[in-house]
């Protein structure tokens, strides 16, 4: 078995190199702003750019809104399916997987066609309603991951007994959802939330095509016009991804999935 263990270490080494070399190179590149000497000038320029702060804030607020809407949509649905309509489970699961089948760019193309300013529901008519549309499209992108993590958490608890116990103590539906079910699926909800955050924060395609000032399109714009600042931004957004995934690990004990939206 010695030989095969050597092979395993070799495979790991290759993996480590593939993972770390681009990061190292990006970091090194981001420090090259002045010829011949390493400096953090690129970071200083990026952080001082008012557009950076504005787009990051916009994306963070949008991510938080997406998380709230996604959870408000998924938790009651998954709970109700588990409790009362188990027959619908395959249908709902199929629908939650659709965003993995239909590429994001196709979805947003459909939105632009159905919600354009001359349609019945002109969501792209004003900036505010476009924000709502963008939020809904992010809920859609995150749906497979949020649904899966909430559903896994719900299956781990005894929904029926908890509901009956709460009802026999006189709880209404909102009390049951907010004070009984939600605290019990906290882990799943949190890992879904961080994954949503990781998807939304750097998403490019939908924000760009709906013409909203989010962080993803800003990244692309800087990338097309600057030399060293993009590397600094890449390091910053890598740190953000790390933070989200690290928090999922802390709360969800390794339930990290993969976010499709960023691509």
């Amino acid at each position: 078995m010695r030989g095969s263990r050597l092979g395993s270490w070799l495979a790991m080494l290759l993996g480590v190199l593939y993972f770390f070399i681009p990061l190292l190179a990006t970091f090194e590149f981001s420090l090259r702003y002045f010829r011949g000497v390493y400096s953090v000038e690129a970071y200083r320029i990026v952080l001082a750019d008012p557009q950076f702060g504005a787009t990051v804030t916009y994306s963070i607020v949008l991510a938080l809104a997406t998380i709230v809407m996604g959870i408000a949509l998924v938790v009651p649905t998954a709970y109700w399916i588990q409790l009362r309509l188990p027959g619908l489970r395959p249908v709902v699961e199929f629908i939650t997987l659709l965003p993995l089948v239909i590429p994001a760019i196709v979805l947003v193309f459909g939105y632009l066609r159905i919600y354009n300013s001359s349609s019945i529901l002109p969501l792209t008519g004003t900036e505010r309603t476009t924000d709502v549309l963008l939020m809904a499209s992010y809920v859609t992108l995150a749906l497979p991951y949020v649904y899966r993590s909430v559903d896994t958490a719900l299956r781990a608890i005894d929904v029926r007994t908890l509901t009956q116990a709460a009802q026999s103590l006189g709880a209404g539906w909102s009390t049951i959802l907010f004070r009984v079910i939600l605290p019990n699926v906290r882990v799943g909800v949190l890992s879904g939330a961080f994954l949503t955050f990781a998807i939304v924060i750097g998403e490019f395609t939908m924000a760009s095509l709906l013409d909203r000032p989010a962080f993803g399109p800003y990244l692309q714009l800087i990338g097309a016009n600057r030399a060293y600042e993009p590397s600094a931004l890449a390091i910053i957004s890598f740190a953000l991804t790390w933070a989200c995934m690290g928090l999922i690990q802390v709360f969800g004990r390794g339930a990290a999935g993969q976010a499709a939206g960023a691509r």
Partner: peptide, 17 residues
């Protein structure tokens, strides 16, 4: 988990560097 989520625009920057 981290690497599979590190995609999109920043990934392109990383490979350019």
């Amino acid at each position: 988990g981290v690497a599979s989520n590190f995609a999109g625009v920043p990934l392109a920057f990383a490979f350019l560097a």
